[in-house]
Write a protein that binds this DNA or RNA. Structure first.
Lengths: 194, 194
DNA sequence: TGTACATCAGTGAACGCGCGTTCACTGATGTAC
DNA sequence: TGTACATCAGTGAACGCGCGTTCACTGATGTAC
């Protein structure tokens, strides 16, 4: 099985109180997502991985959907972080766009959850919506300094998101293996800037 | 309930042989998808809608996944058709792009299935893959007459697909209600053309 | 410092459910002679 | 034209499964006095 330490998994010496079950649950749920089991991520399976009874999860999450929303929120925070850390030596459409795409490729399952059909009603989870908007804000307006919501502001975001989606779905080659995405962004940055 | 005629639903006078159960199944599955029940589309529920035993489906589809692949194939055929019918009075990025987006908005559930995580292994379904490639071919190369697979060929496709995805996810306003998508495409067509 | 008690994070058993799929079958349809 | 028969599209019952959630509970932790 797994090592008992380091990931919140049950151990013979594990104290009665887990310590940070919410985080351990999110962590395990993401592991399931990354294994491709988009559909098999659920409360029971997640709790099982953590080594805890399914019921224990309800001390920290109101429902399965609540857990997933929590995971997605974490994802948007990380997506924003990745874009913030992107270097400033290139046009932001390129640097942030590549960070966005890299995030999607490295965390396909999480990316799918964040934009998938499961969490359509974002309004039910204010923290999720806030995290998402904060991440999006870094990509909107990346094309020129246009007002948010304007055509040129949304254009860069749509291009990057489209590239990420196609790559995640295996319809376009991933950067690293193939420079296609990067070339597209570089060219677009040049043409859309003016 | 529903009218017994016109949609393959069970009727008192329905003959023993359904006539076109495969089509009726696809049709019912799409109805479920459009009601937002991305996750609730399955063999049993679909058969129930058609008014047929769950087992009957296995005369025509090898599995649930096979049914979904069949539905998605139909979807790609229709997506291609919609783009083919788009007028030639505007740049193809605009006309075909709007047709693509319009399809996605009108058939959200189907669009999600076509690009979702359920049917990742497209290679298992040659007909599905073929239909998808045929549809994509109409969007690739829409930006300039570049070689398929080249950066500028994929760029337009990515932009359109990204817009469609954001709109379906409620992150950008749908055309009709808001001219944003159209404006983006018109501007991009101008800038990316040269 | 010790004790009573409220709080809180766990537990296992159970609920009802719907799923995908297989089985042995039935009865209508089409075809060969 | 009639009949025997193979084929084919349905049927209901059953399989085992895992799910989300609720229940009554247990036992550790922290706090007030």
């Amino acid at each position: 099985m797994m090592d008992a330490h380091g990931s919140g998994v049950l151990s013979p010496t594990r104290p009665y109180r887990h310590g940070d079950l919410p985080n351990a649950m999110r962590c395990a749920a993401r592991a399931i997502l990354d294994e491709g089991g988009q559909e098999s991520v659920g409360l029971r399976e997640t709790a099982r991985r953590v080594g805890v009874s399914a019921t224990a999860a309800y001390r920290h999450f109101a429902s399965k959907e609540d857990l997933l929303a929590s995971v997605a929120t974490e994802g948007f925070d990380e997506l924003r972080g990745a874009m913030e850390e992107a270097g400033a030596d290139r046009p932001p459409l390129v640097s942030r766009g590549l960070a966005y795409i890299d995030f999607a490729v490295r965390k396909k399952g999480l990316f799918r959850l964040m934009f998938g059909a499961v969490l359509i009603e974002r309004a039910k989870y204010p923290a999720l919506d806030e995290a998402a908007q904060a991440a999006f804000a870094l990509l909107k307006g990346v094309t020129g300094g246009a007002a948010p919501g304007s055509p040129s502001a949304v254009c860069g975001w749509a291009l990057v998101h489209g590239l990420a989606s196609l790559i995640v779905d295996g319809l376009a080659p991933a950067p690293g293996a193939d420079p296609l995405a990067e070339e597209i962004l570089v060219r677009a940055a040049g043409k859309l800037a003016n």
